[in-house]
Design a protein around this nucleic acid. Structure first.
Lengths: 203, 203
DNA sequence: TGTACATCAGTGAACGCGCGTTCACTGATGTAC
DNA sequence: TGTACATCAGTGAACGCGCGTTCACTGATGTAC
């Protein structure tokens, strides 16, 4: 911890990072502005120089999270290379990797219940993350005959739901499972893809 | 609202029901003992005649939820009748129906982060609910050749994860989807079962 | 290079609030005789 | 049926606490000349 004078230097980002730790530790609802200020070695009132208030700080945490998330997903997807299938599976793995590596961001994004109406700056960046998975699903769909090709938005919703469920129940949660979350999601997606007709019926 | 004298008559259950509404409305973290007491037209101190405190009331809500949940799942499963497949699908539908009809219970069970250690009365009833889905998955597995039969506990974890994900993201959540949650889960489970080799590869 | 001054980013005290919990109490109910 | 009394389930006041937010302030920094 470095010394500092009257001025902090980079309080805004320091508050975001303090919030991240607190959120990961106590959930978005348990996070308080006062504790974040204390963690950044600053008076609660100082927070108001950089954020409109508690919710606004929370929203900034979520916004940065969506940014990282979208970037990771895009990197994993890699424009569908080497194959649509491999890219899709990599995207699924990236989802879980993000949740594990950035728990504070993840919780601010998906468990804080932030209104996208109240924080319009969140909408575009949230959509960007979503679009990656949908493109990945779309790439897959093209390998299916048109008559039994579910909409890409449905496929991506299925995968998103299973991924989120694995995170909440088996990674974060109290529910114990004999399988590591990563294996659980990988096998679940595998079976699902076989059901779509994209993997051979047996291994 | 009926008149009452000094004694309430059935305060314990009235508090549980007040808590249910508050939880559904503001999440388990937002629920307060004082508001529950006020909703039951009683002083906050009166709550302590029936519960050890706020968390204990929350735990009772969750316990009742697990009870209802397990009963609904068992009813839907119906000991695997008429077929293992139909019973499994009915169980999946029952999951979502429960989440929709009993949001307060659902949230107390899965979003409150109650420690099963601190409330040992929760463990057996939570396990009972879990066991139903696992029996349903086990019934399915028996129709698969032993060499490509994933463990029943894995299958049930996959389905639980997808169900929970659909509830959190698309039923409760801000995420909008063109598909109703019920359809989303049904189609997702359908594709998954096809992947297991339990449904014909095309429709 | 030195000085005056505007701007900025903090402080510290104060606010009103609702929270969970405790305590001594009291009104209502049920039971023994 | 009537009365004394124990038990029970509420009340009401009080507590200490931490919260988010506001306000007038002040110390530090940067800029103009």
């Amino acid at each position: 911890m470095t010394k500092r004078g009257y001025h902090h230097g980079n309080l805004r980002q320091a508050l975001v990072e303090a919030a991240l730790e607190l959120i990961a530790e106590k959930s978005p609802q348990g996070f308080t502005l006062s504790e974040a200020a204390k963690a950044a070695e600053v008076t609660p009132a100082a927070v108001y120089r950089h954020f409109a208030g508690r919710e606004d700080l929370l929203a900034e945490v979520a916004r940065q999270g969506y940014d990282i998330f979208a970037a990771l997903m895009e990197y994993a997807f890699d424009e569908g290379r080497p194959t649509a299938l491999a890219a899709f599976e990599a995207t699924g793995r990236a989802y879980l990797a993000f949740a594990r590596k950035y728990p504070g961001h993840y919780m601010a994004m998906f468990e804080a219940g932030l209104s996208l109406q109240a924080f319009p700056e969140l909408a575009p960046v949230a959509m960007r993350a979503r679009a990656v998975l949908e493109r990945a699903a779309d790439g897959l769909s093209r390998h299916l005959p048109a008559d039994r090709r579910p909409p890409a938005s449905m496929v991506s919703a299925h995968i998103w739901a299973m991924s989120h469920g694995v995170v909440e129940l088996y990674m974060r949660g109290a529910t114990k499972s004999p399988f590591p979350p990563e294996d659980l999601l990988e096998s679940g997606i595998g079976i699902y893809l076989r059901g779509l007709g994209l993997l051979p019926p047996d291994r």
